[in-house]
């Protein structure tokens, strides 16, 4: 455990000045600010809808969630998986890293956990900023009905789903980035995978849930389809999430064997 902790701290220390690290903070700030600005400047049009609190929150949070779920999230995850490994490829530091008196599994796990943490931070910020900016909009535009509904559960559930459903992609891309030092191969494969995922999701292919890349979009789609007492109060652990977690676990272990077999030539 100590060596995982040490390696994790080192990952943070190494990355704290890189774009990959700051992207986790800048992306949510940028997207949430843009959407909120849209709701502020276009308040007249939104008010015409006369949406009750719940609908207004769904519309406001959905604007960010949909962009995230379908496009940004898969690419962001690919970029994270790439950056965490690329820092070693680029500087030719794999050999030094594995010559340290640390367990190889710890080094690998720490890298993986660091990528997971960055994604978590990113999504956590999305949820908090959406919540915060929503209430800020209420103050700025008093006619809004944001104060009629508490979106906490809805935001926590959606972003938890998005987070969990992206872990499958992360593990897969993590392996690609371990094997290949260049940008094009992992991102290229990821790009094709994402397009496939979007198409499979859009045509409602029965087995779309088996493609890791379509899982974030699918996980969110269900939130729109499912009807209940409160349409925004849905369960987190649906089939997509379990598939994503299964992919994540299997590929994480496979990745470790790739790391141990990785010859440091």
């Amino acid at each position: 455990m100590r060596s995982i902790y040490i390696s994790f701290i080192s990952e943070f220390y190494k990355s704290r000045k890189t774009l990959a690290f700051w992207a986790a903070i800048l992306i949510p700030v940028a997207i949430c600010s843009l959407v909120s600005f849209g709701f502020y400047s276009g308040a007249d049009k939104v008010l015409l809808l006369k949406a009750p609190g719940m609908m207004l929150w769904a519309k406001y949070a959905g604007a960010t969630l949909n962009v995230m779920g379908i496009l940004v999230m898969p690419f962001y995850v690919m970029f994270m998986a790439f950056s965490v490994n690329n820092i070693e490829h680029k500087n030719d530091t794999w050999k030094t890293l594995f010559a340290q008196p640390l367990n190889k599994f710890s080094i690998y796990t720490a890298k993986y956990l660091f990528a997971v943490t960055l994604i978590f931070i990113c999504l956590f910020l999305f949820a908090t900023l959406t919540y915060g900016f929503g209430h800020l909009l209420q103050v700025l535009v008093p006619k809004y009905t944001f104060n009629q509904y508490n979106p906490a559960n809805f935001l926590i559930n959606s972003y938890s789903k998005l987070f969990l459903s992206s872990l499958g992609i992360l593990s897969l891309q993590f392996i690609f980035s371990l094997i290949w030092g260049d940008f094009l191969k992992p991102i290229g494969i990821g790009f094709v995978g994402t397009i496939m995922g979007i198409v499979a999701g859009m045509v409602n292919w029965t087995y779309a849930y088996l493609i890791p890349y379509s899982l974030p979009a699918l996980a969110l789609q269900l939130t729109q389809v499912k009807k209940g007492k409160d349409p925004l109060d849905f369960e987190i652990f649906t089939r997509e999430i379990w598939v994503s977690l299964a992919y994540a676990a299997v590929l994480f272990i496979a990745g470790y064997f790739i790391v141990t077999k990785k010859s440091i030539k």
Partner: peptide
């Protein structure tokens, strides 16, 4: 060990490279 070209993180300063190693070695 110093194997082949020194393995150094280019985006960190010399001191930060050493501090990072200190972290790894505890």
């Amino acid at each position: 060990a110093l194997v082949e070209q020194p393995a150094i993180y280019g985006h960190l300063s010399g001191k930060e490279n050493l501090i990072n190693r200190c972290i790894l070695l505890g």
